Simulated scan of single mutants.
Amino acid sequence: MFKWIISYIFIVILIFALSVPTGISTDTVDYNSFGKIKIGMTLAQAQKVAHIGIVQLNGKRNQQDGCFYVQPKSGFQFQRVKFMVVDGKIVTFEINGSNVKTAKGVKVGDSQYNLATYGIKNFQLIGNKNSKQRYFIYAPPKAKNYRIIFESGEYEYITRYRAGKIPEVNYPFGCANYS
């Protein structure tokens, strides 16, 4: 009887935990948005619209100018997600984990051939023969100032991707390229 009660309580807690919204949808990364968060929002706007906390990862505490990174404070599912912030506004979303998909369903760990869902004519490919690193740059037809850049390595799987506005999304080393 006691084991049955413990099992029942565990199931109720698990169902409750899975049904609590985090404020960010895990399958809505697009060239200009991450769930409800849009490129160009301030951190205060992003926190309000997505109902999440945001943690600054580098730079001066409460920094508003220059370039720095923040991360959603929503637990494990967004552990490998960063937002680049320039002069107080979000300019890129960087995804390094396989738990966050693009609006077309592509995620880290997928074959680079899954990028065909975006339409091959909308891509530019940049490669390095020595390192076998490839950058697949998606240019949305109706949004000329935005990109999604998918990176793949030697084994033709997506290792990370970033979405955002030009010029910041083009910085291969993020804030280190910012001047």
Rank of each mutant, 00 (worst) to 15 (best):
Q124G: 04
Y138L: 07
R147A: 04
N122M: 08
Q63T: 06
N99F: 07
K165Y: 03
V81K: 01
T22D: 13
S111I: 05
Q71T: 15
F68I: 03
P72E: 13
K3F: 15
S19A: 15
V12H: 06
V100K: 04
G75A: 10
P72L: 11
Q45E: 15
I15R: 12
V20T: 04
T26M: 13
T26K: 13
R147D: 11
A116F: 05
P167T: 05
M84Q: 12
F83W: 10
F2M: 09
K165D: 07
N122Q: 09
V100C: 02
F150P: 02
G105E: 06
Q63N: 12
V91W: 00
K73R: 13
L18V: 08
A176Q: 15
N145Y: 05
K165L: 11
I148G: 05
I166R: 08
H51E: 11
L115K: 04
I6W: 12
Q56I: 01
I5Y: 09
N96V: 02
K60M: 09
R61V: 06
F76L: 13
Q64M: 08
K60L: 10
I5P: 01
I95Y: 01
N177L: 10
Y171A: 03
F2N: 10
E154D: 07
G119F: 11
K60C: 02
R80S: 12
Q56S: 03
K73I: 00
S98W: 06
S98T: 05
V100L: 15
Y155T: 07
G127T: 11
I54F: 07
A46N: 01
I37Q: 03
V86T: 07
G53P: 02
Q71W: 03
G35A: 12
G164F: 01
D87F: 03
